[in-house]
Design a protein around this nucleic acid. Structure first.
Length: 316
DNA sequence: CGCCTTTGACCTGCGC
DNA sequence: GCGCAGGTCAAAGGCG
């Protein structure tokens, strides 16, 4: 497990038009992305809307944290690294082959139910015990039968490695904590959050690296089917490379309005909302950023987002 | 009062 | 099949 090596594809690096960061970008698994953020560069996360009190610098050894991140084996990661603080243009990144949409669906019948429910219907719920919560114990048999047929769907995941003293980083969405577990070999618990939007199935895990307590690992799973409470901030989007945006999974983290911001607004909404920091460890209450999206809402349908925003999301 | 976190129990997947 | 670890649920309590 821990011995599992993070192997950055040298060929990919070589062929990538994006310069690799100093620390390189590592694919730590096969289904998802890891954004390793050297936090001298809180600027990066800051640009992503996270109000992180950047205080330390250092290199995050992705090899060390990988077991926790990709332990499931179904995730993979890409890291984005920055090498020049304060300059978006200098941000280096390396996008590994995206393997998104490789959902674990074993029964064909599942796809039917999924397609009918679309993104508005949490695909995972039916498989979870929550769906059976109201059922008497005698239903266990049929329950397990169902679970044999319908395997939990794993959405593409993205992990961010951040140096921060704040565990729960502000990202513009509202999250509700639904669980916390002790992590093996780690003194730090892992927290589980779910997007408060009932129609949104996005989840995120937040944990600290046991190797470097100053490092926070945030793993997002799923795709938001709605607008953020108000953000992601425009400058953050400037950091998203074309490669990233073209990846539907990655792009989905940024709502249509978000992407619009990239093109219509630049730095006018970068003011940090310090009051949010006051509740750093609590739920991420929405940041009251005004979206510039309203000014150009049609970009979604104008082709810019046509290939990065799923139809289901556009209506969101 | 509504929303959130906490926390113990339960479920599931996986390796041995 | 068993045990472990990760993931989730849901009741209870706290807070603004």
């Amino acid at each position: 497990m821990a011995g599992k090596e993070i192997k950055a594809d040298p060929e990919f690096r070589a062929s990538s038009s994006w310069e690799c960061g100093r620390h390189g970008s590592e694919m730590v698994s096969d289904h998802g992305y890891l954004f390793g953020i050297d936090c001298r560069e809180s600027s990066i996360l800051g640009e992503f809307g996270w109000n992180i009190p950047a205080e330390s610098t250092g290199f995050v050894d992705l090899d060390r944290i990988e077991p926790d991140l990709g332990g499931g084996g179904t995730d993979g990661f890409v890291s984005v690294d920055s090498s020049a603080p304060g300059s978006h243009d200098d941000m280096s990144c390396n996008i590994m082959e995206p393997m998104v949409g490789e959902e674990k669906v074993e029964a064909a019948s599942v796809s039917a139910s999924l397609s009918s429910s679309s993104s508005e219907d949490p695909p995972e719920r039916p498989t979870d015990s929550a769906a059976d919560a109201g059922n008497p114990p005698s239903d266990t048999a049929s329950k397990s039968k169902k679970k044999v047929q319908i395997k939990r769907i794993r959405q593409p995941r993205f992990a961010f490695v951040t140096k921060s003293e704040v565990d729960h980083l502000e990202d513009g969405y509202r999250w509700r904590k639904y669980g916390q577990k002790a992590v093996k070999n780690s003194p730090f618990p892992r927290s589980y959050y779910r997007c408060t939007n009932s129609k949104c199935t996005v989840k995120k895990r937040v944990e600290r690296s046991y190797e470097d307590p100053s490092v926070v690992i945030t793993t997002y799973e799923g795709q938001h089917c709605h607008h953020s409470v108000g953000y992601p901030r425009p400058a953050a989007l400037n950091l998203i490379t074309p490669h990233q945006v073209q990846d539907p999974a990655f792009a989905s983290y940024f709502t249509p309005s978000t992407i619009t911001l990239q093109n219509s607004v630049h730095s006018t909404q970068l003011r940090p909302h310090s009051h949010q920091l006051g509740k750093a460890t609590g739920a991420s209450h929405g940041v009251d950023y005004h979206q510039g999206a309203s000014s150009e809402p049609d970009l979604v349908g104008q082709g810019l987002l046509g290939d990065i925003v799923s139809p289901g999301m556009r209506k969101g």
